[in-house]
Design a binder for these strands. Structure first.
Lengths: 282, 282
DNA sequence: AAGTGGTCTAGACCACTGA
DNA sequence: CAGTGGTCTAGACCACTTG
């Protein structure tokens, strides 16, 4: 049952949920979130595959030695993040990858930069402490996680027509006014990427940088807009609670000859940004 | 204090939170949701104006005679729906209308129908009972609520360059495969609207119907994409939990001479739809 | 120091689902 | 019917913010 008495003792009461190596987190991460991460890890690892039922709340409560309400709080986070589906009277189930629904196609449109976020800084509304425009605006590398078989990796591979092991991935965050506004993940069908390019903290423009690394020009193939609740990782990156509505802009860019060369998935805090398209001259 | 011992006794234990006339709801609406609605009503009515602090959790707990955890559950719903902002150690505050952040402008793009949702029906994933394509697809009038000073009404008035009392409003829902997929609200700078047009349950195409009622042609001025958690009303309309991430598509349509003639705000269940733009011929 | 929201527990009862 | 998740209470302690 993976019961370890007290490794890496935590600052809180610690049934048996230490912070893990992958997710160090703040010194005093709430119990329910540590549990949520533990469950997320099991799902990622395939211990609870898509469609499988999680242990019942009383079972989880007993296994981890926490109150059932704490279990519920953890599972609720995963539900808001669309990781699991709760069926009353039945159980809690791991969600299969989202079904892709269509689609308003537009064969005539011109190319234009839907992606550029030349945002004016929002002034803090009344009642809030006003925060000035900080330094540190721009896009920054966060990590270059290995491409495993995770759901998002698999989706990227599908979109690029490759196998996951052929892809490289970089994650970045876009900061504006001292706040993280968007998190992006890029997949490209080559690698390994230059170490300097993926150095955590490096500022840059990942699309340009990746195109340069590949020695190609990129243009839009398609872009899509959707909405999803923030998962645990995005929530941490963006500094919002899990489940916060995120605007998702994803798509494929290709070389001029039509070869898919980049899959990008950008998550934008829904409360802080909006994409606007103007159809009339001003 | 608005303390009424037991009017309209509820099927549940009823401190003093009956279902209201405006929000009858199921016979056994959970206590925390009735409380959430009550608070939402006070906010709408201006009892707690934008920026104001709500009573503290112990105060609300005492006023309504419910446990503090129940209060927290209610407030959490309002927070996920972006109605209030919780500041730890300080209090809970009514959110001012969202700051509009820019924006990638595109002066060159062609007109095309971003709005048409010619969606293939998503098959229910494994593990769920498969549901076939039901009848009843299309757009249906839900209501023609009076245009008051609510935040959304004020926004519509601002976008149309009118005063709220000059506007008429219609709400609709779009059903697809037997499920409500999108909720739409339309504001037009004239009225009253024909009774038949706004008859609840009437099928139609509201944009066309409204253009016809106004005797004008409509074209896009601008459209924007954002994301927001479902508020209590949208959640009920769409059959999703409050806080569910919704893709919001809003915008103004105008007559050929450039007069703003329609403001529309459509909320789409983020898990069930996605807007895709193709930039290359297929 | 006082007041706020955040976390956690123990225990109870209810509503729903499926065998 | 047994087992699941959903709601609600009472009470405790903690972390954070402000005066």
């Amino acid at each position: 049952m993976a019961t370890n008495p007290a490794d890496t003792p935590n600052t809180r009461n610690t049934p048996n949920l230490p912070n893990t190596a992958d997710h160090p987190g703040p010194p005093s991460t709430p119990l329910y979130r540590r549990l949520a991460r533990r469950l997320q890890e099991r799902i990622d690892a395939g211990a609870y595959p898509a469609g499988a039922r999680l242990p019942s709340e009383p079972e989880l409560s007993a296994e981890f030695g926490v109150n059932r309400l704490t279990v519920r709080q953890a599972v609720a986070e995963l539900e808001r993040a669309a990781v699991v589906e709760i069926r009353r009277g039945v159980g809690t189930f791991v969600r299969p990858p989202a079904v892709r629904v269509s689609i308003a196609v537009d064969p005539r449109s011109q190319r234009f930069d839907l992606g550029s976020v030349q945002a004016a800084l929002p002034e803090a509304g009344q009642g809030g402490g006003s925060r000035g425009a900080d330094r540190g605006d721009g896009e920054f590398v966060v990590a270059a996680p290995p491409v495993t078989g995770s759901a998002q990796d698999a989706e990227a591979a599908r979109q690029l027509g490759r196998e996951p092991h052929e892809l490289s991935r970089v994650d970045s965050v876009i900061r504006l006014g001292g706040r993280a506004r968007a998190a992006s993940s890029y997949w490209v069908p080559f690698g390994p990427l230059p170490a300097e390019l993926v150095r955590p903290g490096r500022p840059g423009n990942l699309v340009l940088d990746l195109a340069r690394a590949a020695g190609v020009e990129l243009e839009y193939d398609w872009r899509a807009f959707g909405a999803v609740g923030a998962d645990l990782a995005d929530a941490e990156l963006l500094g919002v609670p899990p489940g916060t509505a995120l605007l998702v802009r994803e798509g494929v860019s290709c070389t001029p000859d039509g070869t898919a060369a980049l899959y990008v998935r950008r998550r934008i805090d829904g409360s802080s940004a909006r994409f606007v398209l103007h159809f009339r001259d001003r």
